[in-house]
């Protein structure tokens, strides 16, 4: 029997490739971030520009917009690999698809969730978020978007064989995002009130771990089914 590279090598090779592709297709990297920043403009325009109105809704609004940005970037996670035949090469390589899905989801997070979390203080300023909320905002988004990427990978894998799966993907994933949204936005709200918010962040971290363990299995299973169509 032959040996194939260990999971860590497969993971790094896949991860590097994702970053390389993103570096070549920069617009795909920047689009969710620009979306994140530009949609924020709608909130004062659509509601009211004064700080008294914006401050109380800022945590929830920033969280909703971050969630939508991740959601919009999900459909490309497996799509292009499916179209050019790379996905079947991954399945037939003999590697456990679990690690490859983790590599792809992690890369997706590095390319969307991480920059979103780092950019979020700018949005906080624009939305008159009180000073106490910033640390909670960044930390909750770091863990929260991690879960969103892993859970989203399931939706992306389930709809990969469908030509126009984008809207369907959102439809099936939105209910699964509810706990992350609730915990994320409430951690910021709690922090603004000056109360301890560590509990929510701990729960977000727990969800992140749980999705890290379970979601790649479901996504890997879905990919194998999608290839069989």
């Amino acid at each position: 029997m032959s040996a194939i590279p260990g999971p860590h090598r497969a993971l790094t090779a896949s991860f590097k490739r994702e970053l390389l592709v993103a570096a070549r297709a920069r617009s795909e990297f920047f689009n969710p971030l620009i979306f994140f920043l530009s949609i924020t403009m709608f909130v004062p325009l659509g509601i009211a520009p004064d700080a008294q109105t914006l401050a109380p809704i800022a945590p929830g609004m920033i969280w909703i917009i971050a969630l939508l940005s991740v959601l919009l970037s999900l459909d490309r996670v497996f799509q292009s690999d499916f179209e050019d035949g790379s996905l079947e090469q991954m399945v037939l390589s003999g590697q456990s698809l679990y690690w490859i899905v983790i590599a792809k989801s992690l890369a997706h997070w590095v390319l969307t969730g991480l920059p979103l979390a780092l950019l979020s203080p700018i949005l906080g300023v624009m939305m008159a978020l009180p000073g106490e909320g910033y640390v909670a905002l960044v930390v909750s988004l770091l863990f929260g978007t991690g879960s969103l990427c892993f859970i989203g990978a399931i939706g992306s894998a389930l709809t990969v064989a469908l030509r126009r799966g984008g809207l369907l993907l959102s439809l099936i994933i939105i209910p699964l995002y509810v706990p992350v949204l609730i915990l994320g936005s409430s951690s910021v709200q709690t922090a603004v009130l000056g109360e301890p918010y560590l509990g929510q962040v701990a729960l977000l971290a727990a969800i992140w771990l749980l999705s890290l363990m379970i979601a790649p299995f479901a996504a890997a299973g879905s990919i194998k089914i999608s290839l069989g169509t």
């Binding site: 399931i154 099936i172 699964l176 879905s222």
Partner: peptide
């Protein structure tokens, strides 16, 4: 696929 989604749910 829908079975997997139901289980994830």
């Amino acid at each position: 696929t829908s079975a997997i989604l139901a289980l994830v749910g």
